[in-house]
């Protein structure tokens, strides 16, 4: 009996190891080949990059058609501003939705929920035309608001549920002390929302950082994803350079993920589970 159990455990571990290798292999290939010259890549794709070369990285940085700094800047601005704005407006809206029990607030809640099901492709063309009619040019500022609009549904929903689970007494006590609603929210409630905020920030932030379709179709804003997509074109014959681009896109995310792994998992799954 015991021996059988042992055998099963070993079998399980072997299975998991094989699967882990399969999952990691493409990532390993991408990272190790970034530091190899292109000729070696096809002959020995699995070998370690010894001696490593930074030739590929250098040619990416030096390429006249790519501006890595600009891409990182755009992506960072979009991610930070988009996430911050989403958190602010959604948490405030959720405060209203969770604490006011009127028919109107109920309706508003459903109204915000509809957005979760929307296949985003439906709004690209109308958005282009809307911007034209308002004579707003494409650009990072507009895109920030577009990202916020796309994430409000999810974030508001999460915050509303979370605020529901918090006792109202604290807020009432603060109000008796003469605090305004605004103060109550920012000074008392918002700090309590921190776990929820982390979850939302990761979900929204990562979503914006990795988004490809939205910046591509709304004016081809050079974010890291769109930038790499357009830059790889002329170099697609040289895998070393392609891998170097991928390296630039993926490395920040992998590093942050390994540091804040728990938060990532919560952030990306909690949303789905609550929904």
């Amino acid at each position: 009996m015991k021996a059988k159990k042992r055998a099963v455990t070993i079998l399980q571990t072997v299975f998991l190891i094989i699967l882990a290798v399969i999952v990691l292999l493409p990532i390993y290939i991408a990272i190790s080949n970034t530091f190899k010259v292109s000729d070696i890549i096809l002959d020995q794709p699995l070998s370690l990059p010894i001696p490593p070369t930074i030739q590929n990285i250098v040619s990416v940085i030096k390429s006249p058609n790519t501006n890595m700094l600009e891409m990182y800047r755009n992506s960072t601005i979009l991610m930070v501003a988009g996430t911050a704005l989403t958190v602010i407006v959604s948490s405030m809206a959720a405060y209203y939705l969770a604490r006011v029990k009127t028919k109107f607030s109920g309706m508003l809640r459903v109204y915000f929920l509809i957005g979760i099901m929307v296949p985003y492709v439906i709004v690209y063309m109308p958005l282009c035309i809307l911007l034209r009619n308002l004579s707003i040019p494409f650009g990072v500022p507009v895109l920030i608001f577009v990202f916020v609009s796309g994430n409000i549904s999810f974030a508001t929903f999460m915050y509303t549920n979370y605020i529901h689970s918090l006792p109202i007494e604290l807020e009432e006590a603060a109000e008796i002390d003469g605090a305004t609603r605004f103060q109550v929210f920012w000074k008392i409630l918002f700090p309590l929302l921190r776990p929820c905020t982390t979850t939302i920030a990761i979900f929204v932030g990562l979503g914006i950082w990795n988004d490809f379709q939205t910046p591509l179709l709304l004016g081809q804003i050079k974010t890291i994803t769109v930038g790499i997509y357009t830059a790889v074109g002329p170099y697609s014959a040289d895998w070393g350079v392609v891998f170097a681009y991928v390296f630039f896109a993926a490395m920040p995310v992998i590093l942050v993920y390994l540091v804040a792994q728990k938060n990532f998992v919560n952030g990306l799954t909690a949303g789905a589970l609550k929904g």
Partner: peptide
């Protein structure tokens, strides 16, 4: 009384950039 103002920014952004485009579609 809770102010509707709390929900207003989200409402405006959401309506302008998501709901109206869907209706336009």
């Amino acid at each position: 009384r809770m102010s509707i103002g709390f929900a207003a920014p989200a409402f405006v952004i959401y309506t302008m950039l998501l709901v109206i485009p869907i209706m336009m579609a």
